[in-house]
Simulated assay, not measured.
Amino acid sequence: MVRGLAKVLVAAVVTLGPAQLAAEAKDMVRIAFIGPLTGGNAAAGVGGRNSALLAVQLRNADPAARYTYELATFDDECKPNVGVQVATKAATDRTIMAGVTHYCSAVGIATVDTYARFKLPVVVWGAILPEITYGNDHKQIHRVNGTMINEGKLAASFLTERGFKTFAVIHDTTDYGKGQNKYFSEFLKPAGGEIVATFPVGPDQQDFTAELTRIKELRPDMVFVGGLTPLGVRVRSQMERLGVEARMSGVSGIMTAGFLEGAGPAAEGTISFHNGAPLSKYANGQAFLDAYAKAGFREDPDAYGPFAYSAANLIMDAVEKVGPDRAKVTAELNTTKAHPSLVGEINFDDHRQNVVSANVYVAQGGKWVFWPDSEYAAGRRTLTGR
């Protein structure tokens, strides 16, 4: 049980009762949340912030907690330069003991040295570029979600097994997009697939007429998008307009409510791969959703909200055990094994990377649906290669 989560969530709406009054007498510990709260990836960022804030509210309502907690929020705008600025601001604020950091991989990789320099322990909640954890040996960098290695490997095997053999890749030119292209391409060839064309594009490119016209001529089975939601929406919408018949897939960067809203009916049948399971598959998933609703958040927690929630709780558990000291919290986080959380056990490997597996989702009826539960898997809707 995650700190008696099922019981605590029942009383999720915190009011000025005895628990809160007691909390006011405890020492205050501040933790940071950093993610994209504005811009095209704000849906994921706001969902993550809300989820981390819920974890803090529930902990403050727990009379057994040794400390009371405050969440300091920072908007990295999904831009590396802004991310470094806010990471520096958080890391140099000595009242902040740890951070729940980054959805965008380009920001996550740009900030690792900052956290290490100022000795601020952080737990990444969404960015999936492997190099964030595996490209360094900074003891302050941890990650509860998986990487694009898990997602890319599953994408290659799942898609080829279902008859998709030829692929066109459109990827952005950030570290995130280049990583997507690298890992998907590496796994695709041994799985029996072929990439017939690759198009590197700027993350802010608006018009894809040239790329999609060429793709239409090549007639691949699948367009694989290595980018985040704004890029995915533009590509999928323009595929529809230009009559590109191929299906579209991508990993968790497009698996957001924003993609479904932005692409509209054209999103139907899009495949995505994500390291998280549906909340319904987690023991305390429904309790989390109930508490989230009772807390009054208007925005969806989105695909990575449960990881932000789990990251915040992991940090607070460490503080509860060793006290509000950055070096001690770092050391405690580094020993994480079999730690219960909303998203299952957290087990860090030698690079402080949680060991997780990926899952398949499909856009169906305006929602992201876990593939085994979908009408596509049941054969009531068709999803096949040429």
Rank of each mutant, 00 (worst) to 15 (best):
T270F: 06
G276W: 13
V235S: 01
S272C: 08
R219Q: 12
A210I: 09
A311C: 10
A311Y: 04
P340F: 04
K281F: 04
S105V: 01
G227M: 03
L16C: 02
G379S: 06
A191E: 15
Y292P: 10
F118N: 07
T111W: 12
K79H: 09
Q85C: 04
N359P: 09
R386P: 15
A277V: 08
T335Q: 14
T111N: 11
V14G: 11
A65P: 03
A127H: 05
N145C: 14
Q140P: 08
F208N: 05
P200A: 00
F158I: 06
F208H: 06
E194V: 11
F167C: 02
D207E: 13
G305H: 00
K139T: 14
I215Q: 06
D207T: 02
N334E: 11
K119W: 07
F33E: 15
Y103F: 14
V244L: 09
T270L: 08
F184M: 05
V2E: 15
M222G: 02
S249K: 12
T173H: 09
V2I: 14
V100W: 07
Q364V: 01
A295D: 07
V356I: 13
A266E: 11
A44E: 10
R214D: 02
N334V: 02
A44W: 03
L58M: 12
T160I: 08
S272A: 12
H274I: 07
K89Y: 05
V355H: 05
